[in-house]
Amino acid sequence: MFYLGMLGLAVGLAVPVSVLSAAMAQGKVGVATIEGIARQPEISSRLQTVLILTMALIESLVIYSC
């Protein structure tokens, strides 16, 4: 029981670290994409592809940590 309690505490402390950092990284990606689209709207489709790919790569790091 003590083991399970410590496990729950460790998971609760460790997962938010990865989630917070991934949220900050995804925010940066979103900001950069919006700036790029605002400067050059004609390449927005290419930027969206890279955006989705990068978002998925960042998200998968969170899934690894879970």
Partner: peptide, 10 residues
């Protein structure tokens, strides 16, 4: 494989 598995399982 872990990315696909983790996303769909989640």
């Amino acid at each position: 494989s872990l990315r696909l598995y983790g996303n769909i399982f989640g």
